[in-house]
Amino acid sequence: MEILVCVKQVPDDSVKIGLNSSGKPAVDGVTMVANAFDTYALEMATRLKEANEGTITVVAIGPEKAKDALKSCLAVGASKAYIVNEDGLGDMDSLTTGYTLSKAVAKIEELNGAKFDIIFCGKETTDCTTGMVGAQLAERLGIGCVTGIVDIELKDGGISVKQETEEGYNVVETSLPAVVTVNKPAYDPRYPTMKSKMAARKIPIGEISKADLGVEDDKIVPSVKVISLSEPPKKQAGVKINEKTFEDTMAKAMEILKDAKVF
């Protein structure tokens, strides 16, 4: 079974990101990591591979530095990695990202000499959070897609997946090839070991340029344009109550809350 996992390198989502003095997201100095939902996707893909045999390839679109995210994936289940160099691709929105990824899928299939059976994506990224790219990739490829899944198994030559819903889950079946986007499953992604990290370092990362993809220029013009960025209005500085005794703390808290007509 040939599996592809699409990964985006994003700023660590446990860091609160505001705007810097030039009005851009203040991401300088923030550790870049593989998008959390993509790591869930990779873990699910790895478990599927371990249960059924197969090979996992990971792909990212990004700058040279995004190779770090791919290396971390190679240490926890993936055995091949490709980076699509973002040079010349310009600003991207979900639509152009889905299109570019569809071209990358075709290129990697050509390089690997095999078609992908299942393409895994995270259900959204933690930076842009549009949650659209996986479904748009599937549309471009003209194959089936199930979004927000928490479990997957092979069934009758296709897949049967659990798609999380508000009340529980749907069991959805589709033939292969297919795209799935992954929500947080019941388990956490595994950690690399020293040995798996060392092994991952030795795996070369394939480089794909804009020219290799054969993208049509008019299809990589983004439709969604960002006009301006702002920070939401700051909350009025709050009060923190920490008196010497519990009774004093509660008395003060209740007084403030009563005055504010909260209760």
Binding site: D127, V224, V226, I227, E231, P232
Partner: peptide
């Protein structure tokens, strides 16, 4: 975006 710490105005 970024979990709501930044708001993007888009067209």
């Amino acid at each position: 975006v970024y979990g709501g710490t930044i708001l993007a105005e888009n067209v």
